[in-house]
Design a protein around this nucleic acid. Sequence first.
DNA 1: TTGTACGCGTTATCAA
DNA 2: TTGATAACGCGTACAA
Lengths: 336, 336
Amino acid sequence: MVSIYDIAKRAQCSTMTVSRVINNTGRISEKTRQRVKAIMAEMNYVPNQAARSLVLQQTKIISLLITDITNPFYTTLARGAEDAAKRLGYQVMFSNSDENLDKEKEYIDTVLSMRVDGVLIAPAGDHSVEHLEKLRQYNIPFVLVDREVPGVESDRVLGDSKEGSKALVEHLIALGHRRIAFINGSLDISTARMRRAGYLETLKLNDIEVQPDYMFDTTYSRFDADPIIEKMIAMPKSKRPTAIFAANNFITLAAIRSLRAKGLRVPEDFSIVCFDDLDPDYIVDPFLTIAAQPAYDFGRIGMQMLIDRIHGPIDEYRSVILPSKLLVRQSSTPLT
Amino acid sequence: MVSIYDIAKRAQCSTMTVSRVINNTGRISEKTRQRVKAIMAEMNYVPNQAARSLVLQQTKIISLLITDITNPFYTTLARGAEDAAKRLGYQVMFSNSDENLDKEKEYIDTVLSMRVDGVLIAPAGDHSVEHLEKLRQYNIPFVLVDREVPGVESDRVLGDSKEGSKALVEHLIALGHRRIAFINGSLDISTARMRRAGYLETLKLNDIEVQPDYMFDTTYSRFDADPIIEKMIAMPKSKRPTAIFAANNFITLAAIRSLRAKGLRVPEDFSIVCFDDLDPDYIVDPFLTIAAQPAYDFGRIGMQMLIDRIHGPIDEYRSVILPSKLLVRQSSTPLT
DNA sequence: TTGTACGCGTTATCAA
DNA sequence: TTGATAACGCGTACAA
């Protein structure tokens, strides 16, 4: 493997001179610069990052950990993060925790061993606190995106899950629905708690009694909704929910699949609303009524904040709350 | 940042001893091993990969370059590659070229500067030859997956695009179709050429004259099919195709969207078949007739071959050709 | 069983 | 404008 030393030998100069050409630092005569450049091109020289980061104590790499690489919300977020990073001269290393704390732990160790310059992370849950403390201990800047973790002070970019929930549930109520089921993610995740709070508050505001039977806690990832749907269907018709508030897009997908398999239709038999879009390119006719979050901006702004912090220590932690937008489509209809 | 030296100082031993504990090499008294281990845990020591790979001349990282991270064929392939790599003690770094040679070039430089141990790559096209030669020059082992590149000798895992095409077109012909359009990817890509060959050969075998008007070259990525569909629709009804062979899943998606927007239906107005599935979890009712390729095995086998080669130099290059399987579903129906 | 000294490829400091 | 030298953190001959 050709090194800076080989170049120097061929160019009859010191490695320092070569280094200066590579990094455009210091003053060099145009003549030597050209000579060295030519030789580097000829020998197809590529600097060794490992050696570089060893001495520079920085890698120009930022880690992005998301919890579900197949969810368009996160892939869009990743795109935003990548674009911002590139603009600012950083590379992004992606990883996927699959909502799994063990995988997250492994990942954190990898990240530490690589000495990345910073971490943009959507934590798997409240127990991520340990992992974040490890980052803190090593002085590796991190920014939370999408989810916060109790007990962890940090920069963060969050959605307004409570307001978004309220808008969705209000929308259903405005359509005449009063028996509204709520299929949520794990309560170990901050957004699930916020969405729950929004649901409960809106019911109360509208004098609708909360039915514990209508509330289900599952997971944000892909899963089988059959058991839940079966429970709902088993209720007497006069008590059966007429609408479903699903906490995210994949829960909705699972619910719709399960309903269809049982011969039930959306929105004829059940209205359904949720957070976040499905991949628009996949869906020939977008029909979900959703609270749309600006996923790209989650990534873009989070990355900006992170790189800010890498560049110069900032005293206070900053929070950005991004609003969601209600998009009414065909999955919700007035109660007949 | 705590280093091996800090541990040694606290444990009152040499760095050599600490290193031996970390790597389980050499003979160490159980007592010192325990002492050192305790101190490492207490100080939350994490080895510095950069330093490590600098001296070891290996990173235990393998790069995987795919051309479209949103295509389930490639994400499934990636999953197979990752599982195999993990099993064999390697980490995978993913990247996405977006079918773009410039991005691929950038990526190759990154990979070289990181001195990864090997590269598993689905090349963006025939011009990738330059990039592959650069890898070759640096003695970085690589394996081609899904696509081959003329002029590049290497290990490779490919699908049987020609046979798959033949099966799809034969299927359409068996259903009574004779006016079969073919929307292909870029002919700069080996699979597109093979699929084309399969299409042409099958028509000939069935005494169907090739209509250049029926053949369109586009791209495997997401794109707008409107111009193509409009050309098809503009033909007099007696000449208009009754079926479409789309080279991959995204082309199909684009075609169906465009058809629907124009009030045309699949399969009532057009039968359509293609290579590779859509994300099954997204699609409530899978209905595409496809030539299904074993995407996971592409990744798994490719990674195996790559790591084999990293471990011990192998004389001959190996090719694996994976067959596809015809899955007849609802997007194709008999011609009425 | 343990330790010393060097080298991996690069950059920063300081001197020429 | 250039170069000699040390340093980054770790693993390994070799010595003790």
